[in-house]
Design a protein around this nucleic acid. Structure first.
Lengths: 230, 230
DNA sequence: GTAATACTATGATAATTATCAGCTTTTATG
DNA sequence: CATAAAAGCTGATAATTATCATAGTATTAC
């Protein structure tokens, strides 16, 4: 079995492509191109016109937006199974986000023509994409509330919990996805120094342990309480 | 011509309903119920299960979410032509937001069965809803960046510009939509006192003029520069 | 292996924002 | 129209966060 064919790809189970028919998947598979992206390399830039969507087979990408003050705000981390760029393709707009690999990645690029054909012909697929986007929108609402109502300390605690829940831990009890301090700061929307300071504080209080840039969660309960505001 | 029929409703031009066929619109019109909502009254609450969507014929509603610290965060202001609750209906989830009228409103309630039927049968409609949601998602991304990267002063300046652009001014040069100071604070995610203080400062600097709770923009250029960080 | 470079860390200080308290004005209600 | 209630305003102060400076530490490239 050719695992490089979309029909056989496990990753597909996690995204809207599962609503496609066998024939559609074959078309997708024939039109797609696979790429490997090294950590730190860009997939696409803010303002760029996307000619298709990117499906993540492996690795993680950060989706960020440059703010007026020159700082990047990371809006989302996309990992295995997630599709990037669909918003721009659907709305026929330039991308509002940049995508950069935060770990080595394997991705499939699917040209927009293939996607658009299915969007027009397969209502199930369209509905599935719509449901996904509805979910993303809800998550975005939650992020807005967190960003505007929680302190930096709470947001960092939450970020660590998020990383554990979504990417898990390695054999040594560290978070499987290691972000630079700067990236962590850009996720929670604060200055890098402030993030570092709070991470040091968490370490002193025994909430986390660190080794180099790696971070592990030590006291999940307390971290959660902190994130919730107790 | 019966203006209360969806087929003849002008408002429809602004939302996804324009992708519906004549027959579909008739069904919508037959199944819908019209309501008037007084300023301050709720349309629906966070956590409530929505049995349909709300189409705004007139007036404005705030969509907000209660944060852990007991403050409301206003995520969106919905006015003429906008549809509320579609996210919940599509994802078949309870609402993540509360809706409260900030001015007297006229709305139409469309039961979810009617919407779902069209979603399954009319790909054009589904695609149109999808495009709308893609747009909302982009706006949400922008809000996230603003919330996390801009100062309260910048966010308040931006809020006033937003209010002018989206709701216009009355005959006397005040913003047509008057929000309480508390609501303004909840839009930009700050303490009410902080919002009031900054509004006073804007007034002193000649950027705005006020009369009671009404606010008018005096120097749009400077306000814009401030919002952009100059 | 070592120099160059990027990342992490911490202190000192300034700026921003929240909180609490008290007061004034506006709005709603009988 | 009087009075209660709600909303708006301001000062003092505390807490949070950003900024600048500087030094240590890890990574990378030659």
């Amino acid at each position: 079995m050719d695992r490089k064919r979309c029909e056989n790809c496990i990753v597909r189970q996690f995204n809207s492509l599962r609503a496609m028919s066998k024939e559609e998947l074959k078309k997708v598979s024939d039109s797609k191109t696979m790429k490997t992206i090294k950590k730190g390399q860009p997939l696409f830039e803010e303002g760029e016109k996307l000619n298709g969507v990117y499906c993540v087979r492996d690795g993680v990408s950060k989706l960020s937006k440059l703010s007026a003050n020159g700082k990047d705000q990371i809006v989302k981390l996309a990992s295995k199974g997630e599709v990037m760029g669909q918003r721009s393709v659907i709305a026929e707009e330039h991308s509002n986000l940049s995508a950069v690999a935060v770990s080595d990645m394997e991705i499939c690029f699917i040209p927009k023509e293939t996607i658009n054909t299915s969007l027009q012909k397969n209502p199930n697929f369209t509905l599935e994409v719509l449901r996904h986007m509805a979910h993303d929108l809800k998550e975005a609402d939650d992020v807005i509330v967190n960003m505007s109502q929680k302190t930096v300390k709470q947001r960092i605690a939450e970020a660590f919990l998020y990383l554990k829940n979504n990417f898990g831990e390695d054999g040594e009890g560290f978070l499987a996805l290691t972000l630079s301090r700067e990236d962590i700061a850009n996720v929670v929307g604060t200055a890098t120094e402030s993030a570092i300071r709070i991470i040091s504080e968490f370490k002193k209080k025994g909430l986390i342990h660190t080794s180099g840039k790696r971070v592990g969660i030590k006291d999940e309960r307390k971290l959660r309480d902190l994130a919730e505001g107790f």
